[in-house]
Design a protein around this nucleic acid. Structure first.
Length: 183
DNA sequence: TGCACGATGAAC
DNA sequence: TTCATCGTGCAC
C-alpha cells in the first residue's frame, strides 16, 4: 500500500471522488489499525453546490472545508452519528468528498454500510476534524494491486432540499459491492 | 438566547 | 413512517 499524497486531493472533486473508490481508509486508534476499502462516496462541489455545507459560507463548522486539500472534515449529524469527508481542490474552494461506505478489510467488527456506521466502526469522531490525511495515524492508501471495478453514478442521498443540485448524479459506488449502503 | 432541523440509522 | 438526540445556523 502507498499513502495518497496531497496532490491526489488537489484535483477536480468528481475525479477525486471516483478515484477514491477501491482505496483503503486507515485509522490507527489506541494501537489498533482498522482498515476499510472505500466502496461508496459522494462529491460536494463547493459553495455554489446548494447541497454542500459550504453553501452557507464560512462558519466555524465548515472552516475545514474552506481549508487546504487532503484534510478530514468530520461533523456530527442528527446528534448521534459522525460523517467523514476528505477536502478537495485548492484552499478556499470549499469542496469535499463524503465517504459513505467501506468494505471491512482489517480489525473491523461492526457494520460499515453508511456514513454514520463507517465512522462508528473505524472509531472516527469529531476529534479527527481537520486532521491532515498525509499524516501518520489516519490516512488513505492505494492497494498494491487494484481490483477491476465498474462505477455506478446516482443522485446523492438525503439532499432533496437542494433544488436542481439534488438531481445531479454525484454519488458514486462500486457496482455489485455488497457493502454499498441501501437506499 | 431560543429554536427548527439535518450529507443517519433502526424500529415499527 | 416515526423516533432518538444535539450541534449549527439563523431568527429574534
Amino acid at each position: 500500500m502507498r499513502k495518497l499524497p496531497r496532490a491526489f486531493y488537489d484535483r477536480d472533486t468528481i475525479v477525486v471522488a471516483r478515484d477514491l473508490l477501491g482505496k483503503y481508509l486507515v485509522h490507527v486508534s489506541r494501537g489498533v489499525a482498522r482498515v476499510g476499502r472505500i466502496v461508496e462516496v459522494e462529491a460536494y462541489l463547493g459553495p455554489h453546490d446548494l447541497a454542500a455545507h459550504s453553501a452557507r459560507g464560512l462558519t466555524q463548522r465548515t472552516q475545514v472545508m474552506f481549508g487546504p486539500p487532503g484534510r478530514a472534515y468530520v461533523y456530527m449529524i442528527y446528534g448521534m452519528y459522525f460523517c467523514m469527508n476528505v477536502v478537495t481542490e485548492r484552499e478556499g474552494h470549499a469542496s469535499a468528498v463524503l465517504l459513505r461506505a467501506v468494505e471491512p478489510v482489517k480489525n473491523i467488527e461492526e457494520r460499515t454500510q453508511g456514513p454514520g456506521l463507517l465512522c462508528r466502526a473505524l472509531r472516527i469522531d469529531k476529534r479527527l476534524n481537520g486532521y491532515d490525511l498525509t499524516g501518520k495515524n489516519f490516512y488513505i492508501a492505494a492497494p498494491a494491486k487494484p481490483e477491476p471495478m465498474t462505477i455506478v453514478k446516482r443522485p446523492r442521498v438525503g439532499v432533496d432540499y437542494a433544488g436542481h443540485w439534488a438531481r445531479r448524479q454525484l454519488r458514486f459506488y462500486i457496482k455489485g459491492n455488497p457493502f454499498v449502503s441501501k437506499r
